[in-house]
């Protein structure tokens, strides 16, 4: 193994064209069944340097969790090359396990029937964490995640938010270099969400822990990640800065105008179209890339304008736009600093 500690020039997470092909049996007619190949992950390439925090998003069934399962060594890729800190997850699963921390929002990695403290004790021994490191990490997690009153409680009795905090702590006790968070805020209340985000941000900043975050809640991404990767139909359709999404998605901006009185929908403004009329207020959409100034001028020249405001597209609609365009035009193989998906 070259560069097995991942400190060299090789990125901590190095994914080159990985694929996962499942063969599923589908009913065809009464008794016949047909074998079909499903390409859940269809050639994904990306690198994550040490210390980065990356959001990984995509619609249900896009291949997100399949990717995570390959990165963590649960599933073996059907093709491509994959190294985490120089380790091949498929072949050295247990060695990799000591270097990564994983939190699944949907299921716990703790021992369901044991008190939280016992679970941590097991983690300590199983990962053979040195005493001093363990004590420092546990203390820190207990303090930051308010775990003290929960330590004696069996995991099955914890609420979702409590369990999630407990899980995050368990994933960090052995000082992992990479932390995978799969839907860490799913089903949590606003306060718990904020607490979890705050903690993750701190772990990343203080420890330099590399974080890969999948989520449905785009607020998680907006608050935590500068870089975001979007997967759809098993392919990366975007890999770059969060800000770059706007350009990539050809998002639309909205101009909201208040007129003096109710009028028919505004017409004849080049590049814009009226999408909604409500009394004297009207909504016009236009491409995000286009300047708003000529538009405002055009409206003001022909209509009795009282007030106006401009709305940027939100991340949610941008992503929806990306999904809608589909993955067919995307090609794998973007570098981490690639600012936009190929179109």
């Amino acid at each position: 193994m070259t560069d097995s500690d991942g400190t060299g020039p090789e990125p901590l997470i190095d994914v080159r064209g990985i694929e996962k092909v499942f063969s599923v049996r589908r009913k065809a007619g009464r008794l016949r069944r047909v074998r079909e190949e499903v390409r859940a992950v269809d050639g994904i390439t990306f690198q994550v340097p040490r210390g980065e925090m990356v959001g990984y998003i995509g619609p249900n069934g896009a291949g997100k969790s399949t990717t995570i399962k390959m990165l963590t060594g649960i599933l073996v890729p059907s093709g491509g090359r994959l190294r985490i800190a120089g380790i091949d997850p498929a072949r050295e699963r247990t060695r990799l396990a000591r270097r990564i921390g994983v939190v699944f929002g949907q299921r716990t990695t703790l021992w369901w029937d044991l008190p939280l403290a016992d679970s941590y004790e097991l983690v300590r021994r199983m990962y053979r964490i040195p005493d001093a490191v363990y004590r420092a990490n546990l203390e820190r997690c207990v303090e930051l995640l308010d775990l003290a009153p929960l330590l004696a409680v069996p995991v099955r009795q914890l609420s979702l938010g409590q369990r999630m905090r407990g899980d995050i702590a368990a994933a960090l006790l052995h000082d992992p270099e990479v932390l995978y968070l799969d839907e860490p805020t799913i089903g949590l209340d606003v306060v718990s969400k904020a607490k979890v985000r705050e903690f993750v941000r701190e772990v990343n900043a203080d420890r330099g822990t590399t974080v890969l975050l999948t989520t449905h809640d785009l607020t998680d991404i907006e608050q935590l990640c500068r870089r975001v990767m979007v997967i759809d139909h098993g392919r990366l359709v975007y890999d770059g800065a969060l800000d770059g999404l706007r350009a990539a998605a050809d998002g639309e901006r909205t101009l909201v105008v208040d007129l003096e009185r109710e009028l028919p929908p505004i017409e004849g403004v080049p590049g814009a179209r009226t999408v909604r009329v409500e009394g004297p207020r009207q909504w016009l959409v236009f491409p995000a890339a286009q300047s708003a100034a000529p538009l405002v001028t055009a409206v003001a020249e022909r209509y009795p304008l009282v007030d106006l405001s401009l709305r940027e597209p939100d991340v949610e609609s941008l992503i929806a736009e990306l999904y809608a365009r589909g993955a067919t035009r995307a090609e794998p193989g973007r570098t981490p600093d690639g600012q936009r998906a190929p179109a």
Binding site: I74, R93, I100, F104, R107, T109, Y127
Partner: peptide
């Protein structure tokens, strides 16, 4: 129920 995945994450 998918809890087998969790066992695959542990160094044992």
């Amino acid at each position: 129920d998918g809890t087998l995945d969790v066992l695959l994450l542990r160094p044992a």
